[in-house]
Amino acid sequence: MPVLYGIAAATVTVTASFLLTAVLAALLRAPALRLAVVDRRRRRPVPLLGGVAVVLVTAVVAWAGDRAGVVPLGPAAGRLLAAATVVGALGLAADVWRLRRRWLLAGTAVAAACVVPYGETGPVAGALAVGWVALVTGAFRGLDHADGVAGTVGVVTAFGVGACAAVELMDGPAVLLLVLAAALAGFLLHNWHPARIALGACGSLFTGFLLTGAAVLARTGYGPVGGAGVLCALTAVPVADAVLVLLSRRLAGRPLSRGGPDHLAHRLRRLGLTAQGAVVVLGGAALCAVVVGVLAHTGRVGASTPPTTACAAAAGVLGLLQVAV
């Protein structure tokens, strides 16, 4: 009976998260256009308040389930959600007032420092985890450059990290990531090409922080080398996108902060793929890497598998680096 109750509660929670995000994202499109909160880097202005829908629904549904005792979060997941919400608010400020990247990075690092369990990781590993969470969270923001990419990769990664948390019997983070995955799926109804609304810094930073923070919690207690391999496998696509962009701009002599059509999806489009095809390829790549990360976390594959995945990602980055932009 408790099992059936848990399944029913999870089903209701996921369904509510999906439907509420789909409705709220549609409602926020008009205010975003009216307030000119749009992404002007694309060929046509796209409203940026889709992330507000993802943040609000994920936080409200998760907290409501916790307060009602239906799906208790626990202290670790509660702190993670609170810190991610603060990061999302910082991202919203960036969408509205165009904050500099260094302020976003600093704010994300401070939030990560409040989540990392130093008592179990130690000060050195904890500091490295804070830096990793901050940097990869920023990399997730870079995925919002094309229709459907950030949401698709976010959904796939949420299921993978949630599976790792479930293996460790961390029900709170696992349920929280399930709610996030449902919210992103509802958002994708409006973000599939041609996108009617985008995540913006608010939603992409919130998503990246929740995923990376939960991954660190799930890997706490494991060795640093193996842990780094699993973490990189779980977030291979955003990391590869960030590395590709940094290398491309450095080799071209352009400022790192100056945007351009040099991300993964842009280069796949240059190779002849459609916008939808690029999302499918990146989603498939994320799925393959996440599966490797989950299998490595559970000990189903050897310790050499995640480094092999990293080498494959590096080869892909070097190959796409040759594509003109």
Rank of each mutant, 00 (worst) to 15 (best):
G88N: 08
R100N: 13
V133Y: 02
P117V: 04
G148Q: 08
A150K: 01
L128E: 07
A163W: 03
L105D: 05
I197V: 15
G107D: 04
G119A: 12
A127N: 10
R100S: 15
R141Q: 13
V87C: 07
H193R: 11
T108I: 08
G122H: 08
R101P: 14
T157Q: 08
A139L: 07
T121C: 12
A93W: 05
V179L: 13
G131Y: 11
A106C: 13
A195F: 04
R101E: 15
A94P: 01
R100A: 15
V87F: 05
H193P: 00
L189C: 10
R101N: 14
V110D: 08
P117G: 01
L169T: 15
G107R: 06
G148N: 07
T157W: 01
L92C: 03
A198Y: 01
E120Q: 15
R102Y: 15
D171L: 15
A93T: 08
A89E: 07
M170F: 13
L189I: 10
V167Q: 15
A182E: 07
A106P: 08
L180T: 04
V175Q: 11
V110F: 12
A93K: 02
R100L: 12
M170N: 07
A146V: 14
T108W: 08
V115L: 10
A134I: 07
V96S: 06
V156F: 03
V153P: 04
V86W: 05
Y118K: 09
P194S: 10
R100W: 12
L135A: 15
L177V: 09
W132T: 02
V110Y: 06
A195T: 06
G148H: 07
G160M: 00
G154D: 03
A89D: 03
W192T: 12
A163N: 02
L135V: 15
G131H: 06
G119I: 11
V130H: 03
G138I: 06
L99V: 08
L176D: 04
L92A: 05
V116C: 04
Y118R: 12
E120C: 09
V110G: 06
A174W: 01
L180D: 03
L189N: 05
F159Q: 02
W192Y: 14
V130Y: 01
A111V: 11
V124W: 14
T108P: 01
E168C: 12
C164S: 09
L180Q: 05
A94T: 14
W132S: 05
P173D: 02
T152V: 14
W192G: 00
N191V: 11
R196A: 13
L180M: 10
V161L: 12
D147K: 00
G138T: 10
W192L: 14
L128W: 11
V115A: 02
A181K: 02
G122C: 09
L180W: 07
L99W: 12
L177T: 05
